[in-house]
Design a binder for these strands. Structure first.
Lengths: 123, 123
DNA sequence: GTGCATGCAAAACCTTTGCACCCCG
DNA sequence: CGGGGTGCAAAGGTTTTGCATGCAC
């Protein structure tokens, strides 16, 4: 299906990109409401779905509620088991995670990333 | 807190282990109801939480609903983008995923595993 | 003008929780 | 017998959806 331009979607993407964080749909809703007080939560969900479809944002289901981020550089996630914070880590250019799975048969790997659980510097 | 023995928990664990798959709480509920028709879904959730606490089952939040598995060998997940199936893959003994993150600072990595997205042999 | 997008609210859905009763230790 | 475990049902929280209206194209 073809997507039509929408100022709401534009705003959602811009705000998420600016924040440089992993945000829940509700946090994003709060953020965009500052610029567009009328925007509904349903609209936020719908547009996050579309943006994820287009590959412009990534939907993370690492915890009980979904998180969204707008960072297209390949990266991995460090999840603190104590405070629940999630931090991105960018691998050196010469490290390709997909190569770790070279031994895999019967499955065509497109993307691969690491989730690491542990303790962040604050905890 | 000390956990007391419970035949329901025993059954849940046994069934999940036997299945050798990733199951949702509801699928597990259906499975154990064959042996214990009275068991409630709440009990299944409570016991899966306890079993996860004890490290006997792993809770996966890779998709919109949580999946549970009973497989204590370290492994990675191959997620098919077409049919949504999730397959375990066991890395060679000499491959330690944690080593891929040796360059990480300000975070103590306990466990690390790879999620790979792509296409499975059936799709 | 056509039909996707929106705002609102209701619904759907997964998961947790309160409660009275049960039973393990 | 004390206190965790159970079944049931209701509540909680997140995400989706139906519908009338608005607006991009």
């Amino acid at each position: 299906m073809k997507y039509r331009y929408s100022p709401q979607r534009d705003l959602i993407y811009k705000k998420l990109k600016e924040s440089k964080k992993h945000l829940t749909a509700e946090e994003i809703h709060k953020l965009v409401k500052k610029n567009d007080p009328q925007i509904g939560l349903g609209t936020v969900y719908r547009n996050l779905g579309i943006l994820a479809d287009q590959g412009m944002v990534q939907k993370l289901t690492l915890t009980d509620k979904a998180l969204y981020e707008a960072d297209d550089r390949p990266h991995h996630h460090l999840i603190c088991k104590h405070c629940g914070s999630i931090k991105n880590v960018y691998a050196p250019a010469n490290f390709k995670c997909v190569k770790c799975l070279e031994f895999v048969r019967d499955f065509k790997v497109d993307q691969a990333y690491i989730n690491a659980y542990g303790r962040c510097s604050k905890c």
